[in-house]
Each structure stands twice: as structure tokens, then as C-alpha cells.
């Protein structure tokens, strides 16, 4: 049985200094088992300016077992699967301690973004690129940040404007954007597929 008291308290404490840390945790639905966390990309890294969403599933034994976390936002990083968003971080596995919290775990993930460990990779392709061609890695990571981690920060009107410039009718653009939840790329795909 999940310790809802602790989870509730963690959510309160985490969202209390959200302005300071930029890290927030919110329930995905009305239960406290599936949560969504957001972390800002660390400044001075290719992830700067992005907002990364992380899916959190709490096991019944939480906090005695680690929370299951994976990136919901696509990210280009040696220790994060570019396909599934799986995170390779020891504190989410064998180094978990009940004294850690969702917030400290998210902070650790944020730290992982700024200090990749290519020698212990989750995504071998990214790790290889990181080691052989750092410039290419950095630009790819920046591109992915721009593409996947910033869409939600753009205003709707901006998206509409850009899709209009591609030649789609305005009413169709608006309805499609609304249907896909404001995701510009998904809307473009749907508009192209007709």
C-alpha cells in the first residue's frame, strides 16, 4: 500500500518553492500513483531553455523502493534513451534511499543533464557521438531541446501563424492544434496527412 501521506507532503513541499527550483511535481490523474514532474534544462548546457517532463510511477512500496521515472520529453543525452526516455541513474536503481524524495530525485536528474556519464551509457549511439564528436552531440542536443522541450512554451498564436505561413487554412489549423493538445509537430503531421 502506497504511503499517500508522504506523497502528499512531498507534493506540497516541492510545489512550495517551485519559483526557486523550477521543479514541480503534479498528479497525472486523481490518484497519487502516476505523477508528472517537470525540470528546467540546466543553464550553460545544450538543454538550457527547455522544460523537460518526466513520467513518475510510484510503486506500492514507495518510499522503500525507488520511484519509476522516465523522460516523457524526447532528449538527446548519453544516459537517457532517445527512444524510450529511460534514465540510467544509480539513485533510481540500487542506490535509492528512502531518505530521498521525488524532488531530490528530479534534482539528480537535472544534475545528470549537465554532467553526462558517457562511460556508463543508456543510449549507446548518443554516448558514442558524445565521445567522438562533441560538437555534433551538442548541436543535436540543442536541436532536440528546441524541438521537443520548448513547444509548450510557445504561444498558440505563434504556432497558428507559422502553420498559416505553410499555407494551411486558419480554421483547420486552429481545430487541428486544439485536437492534438497544442503540439505543433503533431498538428503539422495531421495537417499533412490530410
Amino acid at each position: 500500500m502506497l504511503d499517500f501521506g508522504r506523497v502528499q507532503k512531498e507534493l506540497q513541499e516541492c510545489n512550495r518553492d517551485i519559483n526557486l527550483s523550477g521543479i514541480s511535481v503534479n498528479p497525472k490523474s486523481d490518484n497519487l500513483i502516476n505523477l508528472i514532474g517537470t525540470i528546467p534544462g540546466p543553464i550553460g548546457t545544450p538543454y538550457e531553455g527547455g522544460t523537460f517532463k518526466i513520467d513518475i510511477d510510484l510503486p506500492d512500496a514507495y518510499p522503500f523502493e525507488p520511484p519509476k521515472m522516465k523522460f516523457a520529453t524526447k532528449v538527446w543525452h548519453p544516459n537517457i534513451s532517445s527512444q524510450s526516455g529511460a534514465i540510467c541513474l544509480d539513485i533510481l536503481k540500487d542506490q535509492w534511499s528512502p531518505a530521498l524524495t521525488l524532488k531530490t530525485a528530479l534534482l539528480s536528474i537535472q544534475a545528470l543533464l549537465s554532467t553526462p556519464e558517457p562511460d556508463d551509457p543508456q543510449d549507446a549511439v548518443v554516448a558514442k557521438q558524445y565521445l567522438t564528436n562533441y560538437q555534433l552531440f551538442a548541436s543535436t542536443a540543442r536541436y532536440w531541446t528546441e524541438t521537443y522541450a520548448k513547444t509548450s512554451t510557445l504561444g498558440v498564436e505563434e504556432k497558428v501563424q507559422r502553420l498559416l505561413e505553410m499555407g494551411f487554412p486558419e480554421d483547420l489549423v486552429r481545430s487541428t492544434l486544439e485536437a492534438v493538445g497544442g503540439d505543433e509537430n503533431l498538428a503539422l503531421e495531421r495537417l499533412c496527412s490530410g
Binding site: G5, K9, A99
Partner: peptide, 13 residues
């Protein structure tokens, strides 16, 4: 006094 937490940091009781 001052060194003991008032609630358990694990279960918050």
C-alpha cells in the same frame, strides 16, 4: 532539542 526531527522523514508520521 533542535537535533531531533519531529516527524519521521520516511513516513512523515
Amino acid at each position: 532539542v533542535g537535533f531531533t526531527p519531529t516527524t519521521c522523514p520516511i513516513c512523515c508520521e
